[in-house]
Amino acid sequence: MDGSFILSHVPDYLSGAWVTLRFGLYGVLCSLALGLVCCLLCYFRVPIFHWIAKGYIELARNTPLLVQLFFLYAGLPRVGIRFSAEACAVIGLTFLGGAYMSEAFRSGLESVDRAQVEAGACIGLTAGQNMRYVIFPQALATAIPALFANVIFLIKETSVFSVLAMMDLMNVADTLRTSGGRTVEVLFMLIVAYLLILLPVSLLATLVERRLRYAGFGDQHSV
């Protein structure tokens, strides 16, 4: 391996990593918001909207991100709906991630004991207060591992952003590979870059899960 090649291209990878990380993060945050909204719509069975949410979740979970992006980026403009590549990236990732986040929240909510819901109602809380103070905190604790798994999944999925001509890690590597031919070095740096991004996320997940377990309101739902 050529050390000087590697060193000289660190800045390229840094800028690629920044794109991956930034748009991954936007996607994750929007997915969390969308997922939360969808799962609440379904939980409270909001008329009509909960059917829309369910339909969307099925659509998003059963199609590849790559296909979704092609539709957004190359298909929609032909009927007059045009987004920038960056917007497509965030919209695509959110479309995919929102469904997965919603499922994670849903299984968290389902894990909360019915008796807890009733106990909350019995001290006179409104449905909203009950959700906010009693149900959701417990659901969140159960959902955390699945939510983190989704975060890692979504950041990995950003690797197809190169079809939007975005200079993310994957595209940086691909460009260097085709121009310089140093395939081994290029791929090596790609691996290292993804590891550096995803390892901290995974460590954070472990840390949070452990803290939750020690905080130990796990006695309700020992899985």
Binding site: D113, A115, Q116, E118, A119, C122, G124, Y133, Q138, F217
Partner: peptide, 17 residues
Amino acid sequence: VRQKIGMVFQSYDLFPH
């Protein structure tokens, strides 16, 4: 209504968090 009616169950149902 429930604010005026207290209820306690066999499973205690304290909020664990």
